[in-house]
Computed example of a mutant assay.
Amino acid sequence: MSDRIVLHVDFDYFYAQCEEIRNPNLRTKPVSVCIFSDRGGDSGAIATANYIARKYGVKSGMPIKFAKSRLKQISDAVFLPADFPYYSDISEKAMEIMKNHADVFEYVGRDEAYLDVTKRTQNNFKNAGHLAQQIKNQIRNEIKMTCSVGVSSNKIVSKIASNHKKPDGLTMIEPQNTESFLAPLKVSDIPGIGKVTEEKLREINLNTIEELRKVDIFTLNKMFGRKISLYIYNAARGIDEEPVAEKQPTIQYSRIVTLKKDSTELDFLASSLEEICADVYETAVKNKKMFKSVGIQFIQSDLTGKTKSKMLKNPTLSLEELKKTAHQLLEEALIDQTLGVRRLGVKISELSDLQGQSSLTNFF
C-alpha cells in the first residue's frame, strides 16, 4: 500500500467562493455565507467566510450576530443566505473535472475529494505534481474557482498537505519527507483531532506531532482507548493504508428545526419531536422506502452538535415505531445533557424499497 500516489483536493472557502463566482464584485469585500434559523433576524450561524472576512475573526460556526459585530465598522461587509442547490451544481462540475484525472475517485463532500493517480502518473511524484497543477488550472479556467491540493503516498498526509498552503496551494510530500514534514505541525493538524483531544494531549505537554511521536501506544491507549490511540499513533507517523475507494453517497431522510427556545426539558422537546417524525415519515412514504436506522440530532446552545442513533431489528415503515424509537433516543440523550438544545432533528437511514408481502406486513 506504500507504492501509491494520492491527491486530496480541497476547495478554498467553498460556499463564499461560489458566491464570488456568481457576483465577481464580492471578491474585494468581506463575505460571509449564513445559515439563518427559523427564529428570524440574525439568528443562525456562519457556514463559511472568505479570507477577507476571516482577517476580522469571522469563522465557520460562529453565530451571525457575533460575526456582524466584528464587521460592524466595515461598510461593505456582505452577509448572504446559503444557497445549497447552487453550490451543489458548482461542485458537480468541479468533481467531473477531477474524475477525468483519476484512476480512482473518492467523493468526500461538496468541497473535497481524494484521487488515486498512481497508474496514470507511473507512480512518479514529478508527474503527480504536474497533474495536480493541471487539475488546479482547469478548475480555475472553467469554473473560476481556486482549490488547494495535497500530494503524498496516502490519504491522511495528503489531507494535511492540502491545508498547508491555503488558499490556492499545492504541497507535495514524497515518502522520504513525510516525517520531517509532519514533525513541526500542531497535533490539531491531524484530521479528527478536535479540541477535547488536543487539550488532553496539551495537558501532558504534547503540542507538536514530533512530540506526539515520543509517546508510546500504551500511554495513548490509557488516554483514549485502543481504536483512537492506534489512529493517532499511526497518523503522527504518516501511516495510512486506507485505499481511495469509490463510495456510494449515503442516502438518508432527515429534518431539523430550530426550536422556539433553547431547552433541556423532555416534554418540550418531545412535542417538537412528534412533528419532525411525521415530516420524515411522510418523505419515506412518498419515496416508498422502509428504514432500519433511526437517529436524533441536537444543535446545542453553543452551536456544537450531538447525535444518537439506533439500529432496528428489521426494516419498517411504521410511524409509531419511528416515534417510539426517536423518543427513547431523546430520553437517553437528555440524561447527561447540560447545554440547552437549540435545534432538534430526526433522520432515518439504512433504506430499502417497500415491496412484497413481507414489506407490507412491516408496514401495517
Rank of each mutant, 00 (worst) to 15 (best):
N163W: 02
A326N: 12
S188M: 04
L360M: 14
I348V: 13
S153C: 14
F79T: 15
V151G: 00
D111Q: 00
A333F: 03
K227D: 15
S43F: 03
F14I: 00
K306R: 14
N362W: 05
F181T: 08
F84G: 03
S180R: 11
F105G: 02
R237D: 06
L206S: 12
D3Q: 15
L322C: 09
G238A: 13
K126M: 05
G305E: 14
V151F: 01
V6W: 08
P249V: 10
E282H: 08
V149W: 10
D262N: 03
L330Y: 05
K99L: 07
P167W: 02
K136A: 13
Y15Q: 12
I143R: 00
E320A: 07
R54C: 07
H327D: 11
D116A: 11
P191H: 09
L266Y: 15
T258G: 06
K55C: 04
N362G: 15
A270T: 12
A82S: 14
G150K: 07
N124Q: 04
I74H: 03
I348F: 03
F105M: 05
L360R: 14
F291I: 06
V149D: 05
I204W: 09
A245H: 00
K347L: 13
A245K: 11
D38R: 09
H8K: 07
K289A: 12
I139G: 00
Y56M: 00
I74T: 06
V104E: 14
L259R: 04
D76P: 08
V244N: 07
V6Q: 09
S301A: 12
G192V: 02
T197E: 02
E20K: 09
R342G: 07
P24F: 05
K214I: 02
F291N: 11
V157I: 11
E203R: 12
P175Q: 03
N207R: 09
G238T: 13
N234S: 11
Y281A: 03
G169A: 01
Q357N: 10
P243R: 01
K93Y: 01
K288P: 02
